[in-house]
Amino acid sequence: MRKLLEHPKPGPENSMYYWRRYVGFFKVARNFIVISLGRYIPFLGLKRWLYRYGLGMRIGENVSLGLMMMPDVLFPELIEIGDNSVIGYNATILTHEFRVDTFKTGAVKIGRNVLIGANVTILAGIEIGDGAMIGAGAVVTKDIPPKVLAAGAPARVVKKLE
């Protein structure tokens, strides 16, 4: 089950209309610049440093963030990635979602020794257990237990890993 915090919308328009009431303009502008730089940097150590100190993400040791990896632009500080994990090319990690009538946020926790394939989308409020593998193109809509292979849209456990 996804762990999401619901924020009421302050007026009659859809929740995205009020994005500046949920997060400051200058924070989003800074995050956008840092993420835009980080998406193209091929140097893993520099990218980890940039995302740790420029965005406030909690990133473990020896984490590899693939080219074009896209962390959430509004609340990247809600992302935690465990030691020795690999986040693949063009993977997207979201920590917020706008709905018509509400706005929700949720931390994303990725365990140690996790492999996230290329073009994976991880929704807000998800936890991925240690040693899990997520197949390319998957959409992770619910928690993934440790040491399993999950794939598909939505992602489903395919098999247990040894």
Rank of each mutant, 00 (worst) to 15 (best):
24 G>E: 14
1 M>V: 03
67 L>P: 04
32 F>Q: 08
29 A>N: 04
45 G>S: 14
47 K>W: 07
26 F>T: 14
154 P>L: 01
48 R>C: 11
114 V>T: 05
79 I>G: 11
142 K>Q: 15
120 V>H: 05
91 A>N: 08
58 R>A: 09
96 H>T: 10
72 D>M: 10
3 K>C: 00
10 P>W: 06
151 A>V: 09
96 H>V: 09
15 S>L: 06
97 E>V: 02
2 R>M: 09
148 V>G: 06
136 A>W: 01
23 V>L: 00
24 G>M: 06
16 M>I: 08
21 R>I: 07
68 M>R: 13
136 A>H: 05
60 G>C: 08
135 G>P: 00
128 I>M: 04
71 P>H: 12
51 Y>P: 07
69 M>L: 14
148 V>P: 05
69 M>F: 15
132 A>Y: 01
100 V>S: 13
61 E>R: 13
49 W>S: 12
80 E>I: 08
146 P>W: 00
143 D>A: 10
51 Y>D: 09
25 F>I: 13
139 V>Y: 09
162 E>P: 13
156 R>F: 03
30 R>S: 10
5 L>E: 12
88 G>A: 05
37 L>M: 14
44 L>Q: 15
20 R>C: 02
102 T>C: 12
139 V>D: 07
133 M>I: 14
104 K>F: 12
64 S>P: 00
34 V>D: 07
86 V>D: 13
10 P>L: 09
122 I>N: 11
77 E>T: 00
22 Y>I: 03
62 N>L: 05
79 I>D: 12
41 I>Q: 04
66 G>Y: 10
23 V>K: 12
79 I>H: 15
35 I>L: 11
3 K>H: 14
100 V>C: 04
120 V>I: 04
19 W>K: 15
49 W>D: 06
62 N>M: 02
91 A>R: 04
150 A>G: 01
96 H>M: 14
36 S>P: 00
130 D>F: 06
13 E>N: 10
89 Y>H: 15
75 F>E: 15
113 N>R: 03
60 G>K: 10
147 K>F: 07
37 L>F: 15
157 V>I: 12
45 G>F: 03
28 V>L: 09
113 N>P: 04
108 V>H: 10
40 Y>I: 15
77 E>Q: 13
32 F>P: 00
32 F>M: 02
59 I>H: 03
52 R>L: 13
153 A>L: 02
106 G>P: 11
63 V>H: 05
37 L>T: 02
149 L>I: 00
138 A>Y: 01
109 K>R: 15
19 W>H: 13
31 N>S: 07
52 R>P: 05
72 D>W: 01
86 V>I: 13
62 N>G: 10
104 K>L: 15
107 A>G: 08
67 L>M: 15
108 V>S: 11
108 V>F: 01
127 E>C: 05
154 P>Y: 03
54 G>D: 11
6 E>V: 14
42 P>Y: 03
87 I>M: 08
101 D>Q: 10
100 V>L: 11
61 E>I: 02
20 R>I: 04
12 P>M: 06
64 S>T: 07
91 A>C: 12
70 M>R: 11
